[in-house]
Structure formats: C-alpha cells, structure tokens
Design a protein around this nucleic acid. Structure first.
Length: 412
RNA sequence: CGGAGUGUAGCUCAGUUGGCUAGAGCAUCUGGUUUGGGACCAGAGGGUCGAAGGUUCAAGUCCUUUCACUCCGACCA
C-alpha cells in the first residue's frame, strides 16, 4: 500500500474526548473513527489488524472442531421470552427496535437463544453430537457508560462459540480444550505472558466460570494473581474457600488490574431445556443437550494489545497482527533515487511481503519517522541517498530501536 | 443512574467587567527555501461559537431548557 494513497492521516495532538491510551493512539494513527461514545468505525489500517486478530481466532477455533456460522443481529422476542431474557427488568442492556407493524425486535447482545434454535433443526440423534459452532459477529449492548476506548463499547465484535455435548464429561473435555486454544490465541496475539486463566463467578450450572485476564492498568477488573502457577482469581469470587480449593496461598497472590479479554462458561441445560434442544440417546430416550459458551472480543483484544504494547511515540504491533510487516520509508531526493526506491518496493511485494510504502513527497525525515513510530509497524526499511549509494537498506526495529544494514540484493 | 468537568475552524485551544468585522497553533491549498527525527518564509481558504428559547441598544460572554462528550462511582446476567 502506498501511503500517498492511504486516505487516513495522522494527528499530532491528542483528541480531547479520549482519555484511554488505546483510543488516543488508534485515533491519532487513523486506525479508527469515533462515531459516538462506545461506537467506533474501523479504518483501513485498523481493519487490517482486526481481520488478522479474527483470522488467528478462527484458526484456533477451527483447530478444536469449531464450525463457523454467521447469525443475525435482529432477534426474535419469542425465543428470548422462553428463557426469560426478553424483559428489560432482567436484561438491562437490550437495544430494542420495532418493525413497521409495531412488533418489537431486539439487537442481539449474545446468541445462546438464537444458536440453540438453529441447532434444534439439525441435532436429532446422539450421532449428531458433540458439535461446536462459532461466529465473529456484531453485538449490541446498551451500556450505561461505555469507556476505555474500544474496550467497552455499545456496538462491538465478538467471537462466540457454543458447544453442544451429550454428557458432562464430554462437555468438560471440550471445556479444557478450549482453555488451551484460548491461551494459544493470546500467545499468538502477543498477550501470552500477561494473560492469566482466572476463576470467576460461574452462574447457575457450575461453580466457576473462567476468564482470561490480561494484566494492565487500563483494566476494569481486579484479580489476585499467582505468577508461578499462572493462575488468578477474580476479586468477585475471592475467598478463603477458593484458596484452599485451588491450593493457592494468600502470600503468593498479588492484586492486579486486568482486562477481561475472553471468558468461557458452562451452561448446562440452562438454554437447551426451555428451548427444547433434545436428542435421542442410544436407548431411544430423549435427553437435553449440555451447552457451553466461549467468548472473545476481537475489538477489546485490539485495545488491550495497544495498552500493553506502546510507548510515548506510539503503538508497537506484534508481528503477526501488525497492519503491515514492513514500513518502507523513502527519503529519496532525486528522480533516479525515487525510481530505485520504487524498485525495492516492487521487489518486496514480489517476495510476498506486506509493505506500507511511505512514498509521500516533500515530507521531512522526522515527520515520516514520527508517523511510522505512531503507526507501530514492527520494521522500518529506510531508503535514502546514503543507503542507495551503498546498494543497501537500513532496517530499524520499532520495539528496540536496533538497526542493521542489509544489501538490496539480499532482500528476501 | 448519582457526582464532577468540558462543548468556539478538520484537530488542540485563547477569547477580560456583555461592545464594533470571533482569534492563534497544527492540518489543508498556492509559491519559494528546505530534507536522517514532527523545518522555515510569504500568502490563501476554512466558523449556524453544541442546540432551542430568553434578557439587552448589543450575547461566544448573562438566564432557562436541552443535547453531546470525558472522568469518578454504581451497573456489567
């Protein structure tokens, strides 16, 4: 991508109506646009990152047997009435709207009811189970107070997987597999070291649920972390009882603020029973399906990555999700130098590299470097009179500032 | 939803006890000089002063209502 053709621009100043680091940097770098509080659009650079996050999540969900679907935002009240989640007294963050004929609809804040209805058409026999479906789709939650930039929105993307199992053992088996898949995802996203499996309140059908919490001062949750055992307890369930249950000692725990980047729940028959999702077992008896739900918010994850990986100059993207791998910065002056820089760009493209090419004219080196630092692409490839004279390119790492010189002929 | 704060150019802000044609920096456009860490000179375009109503000879400024945004708290199935 030629930066001269990229429609987004960078801002020098901090937007007044954003205090969170993630929104400040993402807006300044032109990754996102704030439509209103808790509602953000993704611009080209931001969308590239978001898509890469989604791809990693999809790959890991596919790897444990997930089948991708795409459900609707608009929700039929009938199924939600069956689980008693339609009422505004019980669920206080519904967005609701109306058809022309005045019938009420909802904008989905989660999809247990919807997915269970779909599965009723397809799950009939024990032979159809277990089954795992997921989607990456927009959710709407009428939050009283959106905050923390893109980390707590009224409209946001969510990966939600739903598991359908025959027995509790079968469910538990998948539940454990999902924990591993989640840790793999967060490791690939560059959050592995700071992300802890965290015990949290479970709801009706299990004692605990599990959250994945990334340590950060920008977080909204307080957790107690055992860094050696790589485990944490959310303050909401912290007690003497859980300490003994998990074999943890008070002295080894540190209180930390953290961002909830994922969570997994055992749902039991909470939704399958009221909605009638049943199958016939080997003996021809009807059984209710045992369910689980597994969420990750890709937008929130993107915000968390910015919070955890930035410095006073801007963002620092991990390689696998950077909008581009290489920021080719042209400091060429003469026409001949510009042509040779263009050749380098073409060569990198032909090698299959993802390159943002800063080919903008009449900008000082300082401006280009400052923009590059803000955008946070992992590697700068700097081409100037000096480097061209030596048939070389200077490579500078965004994270460490380390530089090295390579020959143009050695590009790969 | 309770508390606090802020709304003036695309962005960040100034604007005195109400006073004449509402300003600056950044960004944008033109010309020139620059070119390895956010350069400089000259000129130009860009405003329903968040909105509605009111007081006044006169309102960005005072009053009433309202909307939006930020932060703290509550909430987050």
């Amino acid at each position: 991508m030629r930066q001269s053709e990229l429609f987004t621009k960078t801002l020098k100043e901090i937007p007044k109506d954003e205090k969170s680091k993630n929104a400040e940097l993402l807006i300044r770098a032109g990754f996102i646009y704030k439509e209103m509080a808790g509602v953000y659009s993704y611009l080209p650079l931001g969308l590239r990152v978001l898509n890469k996050i989604n791809n990693i999540i999809s790959e890991e969900m596919n790897a444990i047997g997930g089948q991708e679907i795409f459900m609707t935002c608009l929700q039929n009240p009938e199924i939600w009435q069956k689980t008693e989640r339609w009422s505004d007294e019980i669920v206080d963050n519904w967005f609701k709207t109306r058809l022309k004929n005045d019938i009420e609809l909802g904008l989905g804040f989660t999809h247990e009811e919807a997915v269970t209805s779909i599965m009723k058409n397809h799950v009939k026999s024990y032979k159809d189970l277990p089954c795992y479906v997921y989607q990456i789709q927009t959710k709407f939650r009428n939050e009283l107070r959106p905050k923390s930039g893109i980390m707590r929105c009224r409209e946001f993307l969510m990966k939600d997987l739903y598991s359908f199992s025959r027995t509790q053992d079968e469910h538990n088996n998948f539940y454990e597999k999902s924990k591993e898949a989640y840790m793999k995802i967060f490791t690939r996203l560059g959050l592995g070291e700071k992300t802890y499996l965290t015990f949290a309140s479970g709801g009706v059908f299990s004692k605990y649920s599990h959250e994945f919490q990334t340590l950060s001062d920008a977080g909204e949750d307080l957790i107690y972390v055992d860094k050696n055992k790589k485990i944490a307890i959310n303050k909401e369930v912290y007690s003497e009882e859980i300490l003994t249950e998990l074999g943890l000692e008070k002295n080894n725990l540190i209180e930390e603020k953290a961002i909830e980047v994922g969570n997994i729940f055992s749902l039991g028959k909470k939704y399958s029973e009221p909605l009638g999702l049943k199958y016939l077992d080997e003996e021809g008896k009807q059984q209710s399906v045992i369910m689980g739900s597994y969420g990750i918010g890709p937008g929130r994850v993107m915000g968390a990555i910015v919070e955890v990986n930035c410095d006073d100059k801007g963002m620092i993207w991990p390689k696998e999700i950077a909008p581009y791998q290489i920021h080719l910065i042209s400091l060429a002056k003469t026409i001949e130098e510009k042509e040779r820089t263009e050749e380098i760009y073409q060569k990198l493209l032909s090698l299959g590299q993802e390159v943002l090419f800063d080919d903008r004219e009449n900008l000082s080196a300082g401006q280009k470097f400052a923009d590059s630092d803000l955008i946070g692409i992992p590697l700068k490839y700097i081409v100037s009179t000096k480097t061209l004279a030596e048939e070389s390119i200077e490579i500078k790492e965004r994270k460490t500032g380390e530089t090295k010189i390579i020959k143009i002929a050695d590009l790969k």
